[in-house]
Simulated assay, not measured.
Amino acid sequence: MPYTARVGPKVASALGRWAYNMAGFNQYGLYRDDCLAEYGDVREAVRRLPEKLKDERNYRFIRALHLSATHTVLPKEQWTKYEDDVKYLEPYLKEVRREREEKNKWETTM
Rank of each mutant, 00 (worst) to 15 (best):
M1Q: 12
P2L: 06
Y3E: 10
A5M: 07
R6G: 10
V7S: 10
G8S: 13
P9L: 05
P9R: 11
V11A: 14
A12D: 11
S13E: 15
A14Q: 15
A14N: 14
A14M: 12
A14Y: 09
L15S: 11
A19I: 13
A19D: 14
A19V: 13
N21V: 00
M22A: 08
A23S: 13
G24K: 08
F25W: 05
F25M: 02
Q27H: 13
Y28S: 01
G29L: 01
Y31D: 02
D34K: 00
C35W: 04
C35Y: 03
L36Q: 12
L36H: 09
A37K: 15
A37D: 12
G40I: 05
G40Y: 09
D41L: 01
V42D: 11
R43C: 09
R43I: 05
E44M: 09
A45S: 04
V46Y: 06
R47P: 00
R48D: 02
P50W: 01
L53D: 02
L53Q: 14
R57E: 01
N58H: 13
F61T: 07
F61W: 08
R63Y: 00
R63D: 01
H66G: 10
S68Q: 09
A69H: 07
A69I: 06
A69K: 12
H71S: 14
H71K: 15
T72Q: 14
L74H: 03
P75E: 05
P75Q: 03
K76E: 15
E77C: 06
E77A: 06
Q78M: 14
K81Y: 03
K81I: 07
K81V: 02
Y82P: 02
K87P: 12
Y88A: 01
P91L: 04
Y92Q: 08
K94D: 02
E95C: 08
E95W: 02
V96W: 06
N104C: 10
N104T: 09
K105L: 13
W106Q: 12
E107L: 08
